[in-house]
Design a protein around this nucleic acid. Structure first.
Length: 727
RNA sequence: GCCUGGGUGGCGGAAUAGGUAGACGCAAGGGACUUAAAAUCCCUUGAUCCUCAGUGGUCGUGCGAGUUCAAUUCUCGCCCCAGGCACCA
């Protein structure tokens, strides 16, 4: 990737704790302080490795619409994350200089209204602009203060907008107006060019900023039916409208002006039309011990040299002594860090000691899984050609953006290297909801496992020190927050089948779930219910063939039971195949089992005429239930399967099929509404036509009571379901 | 703050193409069986109102509007909860 320009180094900022001598993750910074030692965290500039994912932004975006097997919400999130916006780059000449500031904007139509400029505090020009001016100290203090602030997107966007004048001016290329240059906390170095042309009349952020610092507001887009007045405006007008105060563009529609102004800028060499992405290049460097080493060598003579392919992979030394504080031991491990330059042979070359973000490995592990024992490269191409792409990928929604986007990107890289034949790694995607639970923490011992808090409810105490615990909000289970449950407790008490059934029955998989063990008893009872029935009937059914004929050969309760079994097969099949909704699949089987219990089988069985057919229908119903349950509670089903007369394992059985002629109901329940309110219901044979149903509904005594002699305005008949009488 | 979801009985959830809200299960209450308990089985269970206790009335799917003969489902506005926001992975 390095040789093809897909991996490169650049400077970027990290959260640095001086006391712990380590880089902190955003979640490890709490209110600007280190979560371990409470020391001030500051932004430190480091030279780090990046992957050029931005080269693939357009392709990743384009193919979002070619993933029909992915949930819509994930597609939307990825599109928004990539954040393609079409706009223009505009160059603003700096006063008393030959240099320009380039900005990116999607609203070049408002350029005539730009009255000041804002640069990100990290922008390299900021110190230059203030140098030698009265603002120099104020600016450097501001920049220094910003360096102490959390600069994550989340934090930056929640700060109150503030900034300081740098002491310099630039010139609006369209109006020749002198624009003060500010540095402001809402300008992001990572987006666009790190500079924002501020148009307070038509951007809320700029409006707030201008009001705060008394900067000029000029209206350049009027509402179509109203003239805006900067003096009375209480908020920015960001919508489309009619151009004013914009020279030759006056009177034009703002949408059209956007095109025209872009063309004008380009023609007059003041800027150009351009596309910008929100997606930033992927920083893969980690200054940590655990992680795959980045296989690069720094040589004093040759510069950066990749480790030759024959020496890959570079393995992490597994027994390094950990250092005081939190820094990685790799740079100080001479046997690891010191190496020979593969190019010039210099024995004093140094290995790169940054390791890779673990997202790198999770971006291609699925390819590796196709040939885990392969030693001649990343993976065996033949195996990958055979197995990949993944037909059905399953993962938590928390991965909807990063992991899934990185995997899509990395697959493209492999594709462009000719290593794989596809661009998209996952054909169908199911994003599971998260299992959530409240967090519990002790003022002294931090986050506690649930079993480390004794007592009940809010009066729980820490088992280590007896102090009352703080019960936090419900959030996704995680190792770091310790709000986790050990499945072994359930496994020991109820066994694997009950535990599996319970987890599947609790809710559909894509939904978040707050963990609770209420209901596990019911699953245990259900399994036992099936077991008892099978046991009761084993002798009568183990040597007969299950009935599989037409329902017309049956009558009464047996016919009903037989149909119910077929209907259940259809429902369960659809629930699992189309929706992955195991909870409703299980309730359908529960209904079938209830129907089996609810049929007076003893009576039918005792009658010598019906006894034989009864055993065969019972066998079909029970077998259907067991087959349908077998993916969910396999051990239990295997055992019953043998008990009721089968030699071969149930896992070798095909999935049950249903008969179309056994699905149709013999009778329909028709609901009657008067003005949309339920007023009655009746049963008709399934082949009754709409007209007859309508007559029956209108003549119903009870319904007539509600019509009360009033004129019927309209009667709506919904096929096989409902009649609504409007009066 | 921005993006994406979600909100239905005491609880988990169902309603798959706008058409009977509450399937299935838990919990609770009552009963049967038992010397007793466990297990099992049966019944009741959204709220509320009623001199006609009924195949009863009214209300009810986070809140407020709207579209429709009909809205948990569609539209708009709001509230709350969760996930993501680029170094948790």
């Amino acid at each position: 990737m390095y040789e093809k320009g897909m991996a490169y180094r650049k400077e970027s900022f990290v959260n640095w704790c001086e006391k712990c001598q380590t880089v902190l993750a955003n979640e490890q910074v709490e209110a600007g302080l280190c979560w371990r030692c409470g020391d001030q965290v500051r932004q430190k500039k480091l030279r780090q490795w990046f992957f050029r994912i931005s080269d693939y932004a357009d392709d990743l975006l384009l193919h979002c619409d070619q993933l029909p097997g992915w949930p819509e919400k994930v597609i939307t999130m990825q599109k928004n994350w990539i954040g393609k916006s079409i706009g223009a780059e505009i160059r603003f000449p700096i006063e008393n200089s030959d240099e320009n500031i380039t900005v990116f904007t999607t609203r070049q139509d408002t350029v005539f209204g730009a009255t000041f400029m804002c640069l990100a505090p990290e922008h390299p020009l900021v110190p230059e602009f203030s140098k030698g001016t009265t603002q120099e100290r104020i600016v450097s203090e501001f920049v220094e203060r910003m360096a102490l602030q959390d600069r994550s997107t989340k934090a930056v966007e929640s700060y109150e907008k503030e900034g300081v004048f740098t002491g310099s001016y630039c010139i609006n290329p369209m109006t020749r107006r002198r624009m003060p240059i500010y540095t402001a906390n809402f300008a992001l170095m990572g987006y666009g060019t790190g500079a924002v042309m501020s148009v307070p009349a038509h951007d809320q952020r700029d409006f707030d900023f201008a009001k705060k610092y008394g900067l000029d507001i000029i209206v350049v887009v009027n509402k179509r039916d109203e003239n805006l007045d900067p003096a009375t405006m209480t908020q920015a007008y960001a919508d489309e409208g009619v151009m004013v105060n914009s020279g030759q563009f006056d009177g034009m529609d703002s949408q059209k002006a956007r095109e025209e102004i872009a063309a004008y800028l380009e023609k007059n060499n003041l800027g150009k039309k351009t596309v910008n992405f929100r997606l930033r290049d992927w920083g893969i460097s980690r200054q940590r011990y655990w992680g795959a080493p980045i296989p690069m060598i720094h040589c004093n003579t040759c510069g950066i040299v990749p480790v030759p392919e024959k020496d890959l992979p570079i393995l992490l030394p597994e027994h390094a002594a950990l250092l005081e504080g939190g820094q990685s031991p790799l740079p100080s491990l001479e046997y690891f860090a010191k190496t020979q330059c593969p190019k010039c042979g210099d024995p004093n070359a140094r290995r790169e000691t940054d390791t890779m973000d673990t997202f790198v490995e999770s971006s291609w592990y699925f390819e590796r899984y196709c040939s885990p024992d392969f030693h001649e490269g990343m993976f065996d191409k033949k195996a990958v050609d055979y197995w990949m792409p993944v037909d059905q990928y399953i993962g938590g929604v928390e991965h909807a953006i990063l992991h899934l986007l990185y995997s899509r990107y990395y697959t493209r890289v492999l594709h462009d290297f000719g290593l794989v034949r596809f661009k998209e790694p996952f054909t169908r995607l199911l994003t599971q909801g998260m299992v959530c639970k409240e967090t519990v923490s002790c003022p002294e011992h931090g986050f506690l496992f649930p079993e480390e808090a004794e007592g009940t409810g809010d009066s729980r105490k820490c088992v280590k020190c007896g102090k009352p615990v703080n019960v936090g909000r419900v959030e996704k289970m995680s190792k770091s927050k310790r709000n986790v449950i050990d499945p072994n407790v359930l496994l020991e008490k109820y066994g694997a089948d009950t535990t599996r059934l319970f987890c599947l029955f609790a809710s559909p998989p894509e939904k978040d779930l707050e963990w609770s063990e209420q209901g596990v008893e019911g699953c245990y009872r259900f399994i036992n219910r099936v077991w008892r029935f099978a046991l009761d009937w084993t002798e009568r059914i183990k040597d007969v063939d299950a009935f599989t004929g037409s329902p017309d050969e049956l009558e009464g309760d047996l016919r009903e039971l037989y149909k119910k079994a077929h209907q259940t097969v259809k429902k369960v099949t659809a629930d699992i195949e189309d929706r992955f909704h195991f909870n409703t699949a299980i309730s359908a089987v529960m209904e079938l089992v209830n129907a089996i219990y609810g049929t007076d089988l003893q009576k039918i069985s005792d009658n010598s005429e019906t006894s034989a057919i009864c055993a065969r229908v019972v066998k079909f119903a029970l077998e259907s239930a067991v087959l349908l349950l077998s993916p969910m509670i396999p051990h239990f089903c295997e055992e019953i399967w043998h008990d009721i007369g089968h030699q071969r394992s149930i896992i070798l059985e095909p999935w049950p099929a249903y008969r179309e002629d056994a699905l149709a109901k013999d009778e329909l329940v028709i609901v009657v509404q008067v003005n949309g309110k339920l007023r009655g219901k009746f049963t008709v044979p399934a082949d009754t036509d709409d007209e007859a149903i309508k007559e029956r509904a209108l003549s119903d005594d009870y319904v007539q009571k509600f019509i009360g002699g009033k004129a019927v305005k309209k009667v709506i008949v919904v096929k096989k379901k409902l009649v609504n009488i409007v009066i």
